[in-house]
């Protein structure tokens, strides 16, 4: 009788643990990307300052910013629309070749149409990294970006 009870309890515990693990795996597997609009920026800085930091020491800037939520302030240098209609907002000083390129999150793509060249903007996005290029100008890339202030 006692043995049977232990057996049943063990079974019950295993069942609960199994269901819990299964549920966790299912949830993790179907987890959506975090909505950038709801994320608090880890860093907020003008475009020129960020580009300066990456230009000076890419390695330590990568360690500081890579994968983090960045809010960038600056002037809209260019608005690029790709063949599928997705927007990239290029932020930076027109006198400089370098800029921060922000790929607008597909969910918020409509925001791209509201942007005007030469106006001040604040864009929030996930820092994907820095492409140094002397000929074309260096770029800092933000992905899943949303426009904060326009």
């Amino acid at each position: 009788m006692k043995r049977k009870k232990i057996f049943i309890y063990t079974l019950l515990v295993l069942l609960v643990a199994g269901t819990g693990a299964g549920f966790y795996i299912y949830k993790e597997y179907n987890r959506k990307h975090k909505d950038t609009a709801n994320l608090k920026p880890d860093f907020s800085a003008p475009a020129a300052q960020l580009l300066g930091e990456f230009g000076k020491d890419e390695k330590s800037a990568n360690a500081k910013y890579l994968g983090k939520v960045l809010q960038v302030d600056g002037l809209v240098k260019d608005i690029v629309k790709d063949e599928k209609g997705f927007y990239t907002i290029v932020v930076g000083d027109t006198a400089s070749m370098s800029s921060v390129r922000c790929s607008i999150d597909s969910v918020y793509n409509g925001q791209g149409a509201t942007v005007n060249k030469g106006t001040a903007i604040a864009v929030k996005g996930i820092c994907s990294g820095y492409n140094a290029d002397e000929m074309l100008g260096s770029d800092l890339i933000l992905n899943r970006a949303v426009i904060e202030k326009n």
Partner: peptide, 16 residues
Amino acid sequence: FSVLMKGFAFERALME
């Protein structure tokens, strides 16, 4: 070509 690895977008957050 130069491409940033963190710039690859996957549909599932876990996969990315």
